[in-house]
Write a protein that binds this DNA or RNA. Structure first.
Lengths: 335, 335
DNA sequence: GGCAGGCACTTCAGCGTTGTCAATAGAAAG
DNA sequence: CTTTCTATTGACAACGCTGAAGTGCCTGCC
């Protein structure tokens, strides 16, 4: 009743355990006939590789650590799901680590609790890009959805073009006073690629961002801060006919604040998000958002990981995906 | 630069590797002085146990597999997060497995891809309780949030009392024609503990369920089916003044359908969900729901797991948690 | 015919940890 | 002062697998 080992397979196939190992690893060292015999023996005894043994012997654990700050924010939960499934499709198991703070995030990337993983895919949140890149990891690390550091393989979404696309969309449909619900940054003002896209599209219409219409939530990527920021903006008495949110969750919070304030969406104010999370489709009204092309991002991340695991060397690479507008009712033309 | 091993620690502490192992495992075999010396040596060399080695030698992997059907449904994502964090607090690492179908679910519980885990906590979805219990697992398994099988440790929420509480709440606030948006079951009619709670509360008011007001989504726990089911109910011309949904996600879908149909919530129709997911707080209007007391559920699951890992034998246990109403605006008193 | 070279596979020595069991030291007992 | 016992620690052999380094055997060539 004991779980079969390589030796058991070897005995049945009448080869050495090492040959079985080679066949299993896909090494082209055995003759086709032998390979066939080995596979039959594997099936016959119901062999499954013991990961612990393999890892101990230096064959790698076949496990990739996926690191997200949390799972209660749809953006992270949905990406974690996509990454885990895509890794599984490559025969890689994954271990999901939740890094609730910067220390945990760094720790998860550089070893410690994830030391048993052959590689790491991290959706950074707490630790800014530079900090993550300041130490050389001893295994492949792919940054997912964040700014490239030049030190790690990175997959970035079309933040700039995506944000300029929504901005343009709003301008094209007649909106002129565009508010921004942003995340707080250390410098106290919105920055980053999305903001560039915003400025870019405004500039095309001879406009520029109005500081009085830019409010920051207390934290990145969360509904309550979106609600609070929007409530604050409404209270300020500022006038606007559109609100662009840094992401969908913030938009969901902002939407509630708008409704609470008696503001009609989209009649009085258009509202947009970013990320194309599932929840955006089911708000009332459905939320206009930007799809960062999730499939392409995940494919790129997994491909990079597999290549690095396969021994591919070379400098860190950056994969940029596109982004496209998903227009929905929340940014409908005002009546 | 190699990672320190037990031997390194042993050399510094001037004891045998085995003694270091014993101290690390908390075995009361070494004298206090020796233990102290060992811990100092561990700290001095920066030792971290090699899980692969330990697992190979039979010391267990220290890893618990958490199995959910997906992460895009908030209910599962939020529970996965809570479970993973609670396990981590016990020093247990976790490996999250996404089981998109029944085969994957069974496979994940009974070994195969999760063979390296010391125990399993599963949030069943595809496989009904009986099927999961028909084979004896070779390690602790805790069912989370599902019907007890009598064969596995199980944590169940107060489904009946929770659902009767919402029902009562609606009846108490004057609603009388209660519709139900349910999940499809093999028998084609709503069943289970929640339905019992529904019937129970209705009976207290001398009412009983109206089959014409019960509609089932095409799948468990999802927004689109909620939308479709609700749309269908509206199209049927049935009259009702409240809609109870099997869970929050279904309610979110139903809400959109109601709004699309020009039905005011809560003025014309009250709407309720179940599970107390984050999204319920940010719908417009905020959704009345039932909290299954997540903390208690997770604590119970992790406690059971730790006890079983500690060698606790005995028959399968069932831990029942309560449930309490979280009234919000979606079930406000009609004007 | 002798020998280099390649192919197909095997042997060997761990990887870091743990369970088993033996060994040692010191204390209590005779 | 020897014997017996307990408390503590050590030696050793796995656990299942893999990299490195062989071992034969056959082919082809001078």
């Amino acid at each position: 009743m004991k779980r079969p080992t390589l030796d058991d397979v070897a005995a049945v196939a009448k080869v050495s355990p090492k040959t079985v190992s080679n066949v299993l690893r896909g090494r082209p060292l055995a003759s086709p006939a032998t390979q066939e015999r080995v596979w039959q023996a594997v099936a016959a005894v119901g062999y499954r590789v013991n990961r612990a043994g393999r890892a101990l012997a230096g064959g790698g654990s076949g496990r990739i650590a996926v690191i997200v700050p949390n799972l209660h924010q749809p953006y992270y939960a949905e990406n974690a799901e996509r990454l885990i499934l895509a890794l599984a499709a490559q025969g890689l198991t994954s271990t999901l680590r939740i890094a609730p703070d910067a220390a945990a995030e760094r720790e998860a990337v550089f070893g410690g609790t994830t030391a048993d993983a052959d590689g790491v895919i991290v959706c950074p949140h707490h630790v800014n890009a530079g900090l993550l890149g300041d130490r050389a990891p001893d295994r492949p690390v792919v940054q997912f959805g964040s700014l490239p550091t030049g030190l790690l393989d990175t997959v970035v979404m079309g933040e700039r073009e995506g944000f300029s696309a929504v901005t343009r969309h709003l301008l094209d449909t007649g909106r002129r006073r565009l508010a921004l619900v942003w995340n707080a940054t250390s410098s106290g003002r919105p920055d980053g690629r999305r903001f560039e896209g915003f400025e870019e599209a405004l500039a095309e219409h001879g406009l520029e961002p109005d500081p009085a219409l830019m409010v920051a939530g207390s934290d990145w990527d969360w509904r309550a801060p979106g609600f609070e920021a929007m409530t604050g903006l409404l209270a300020s008495g500022a006038r606007f006919d559109a609100v662009l949110c840094i992401n969908d969750s913030v938009a969901v919070g902002a939407l509630r604040a708008l409704r609470a304030g008696g503001v009609r969406v989209p009649d009085d104010v258009a509202l947009t998000g970013f990320d194309d999370t599932d929840e955006a489709e089911f708000t009332v009204p459905p939320l206009t958002t930007v799809s960062p092309e999730h499939e392409a991002m995940v494919d790129a991340a997994v491909r990079m990981m597999v290549e690095r695991l396969g021994g591919e060397a070379g400098p860190p690479r950056v994969h940029r995906t596109g982004a496209h507008l998903i227009p929905r009712a929340s940014s409908g033309v005002p009546r």
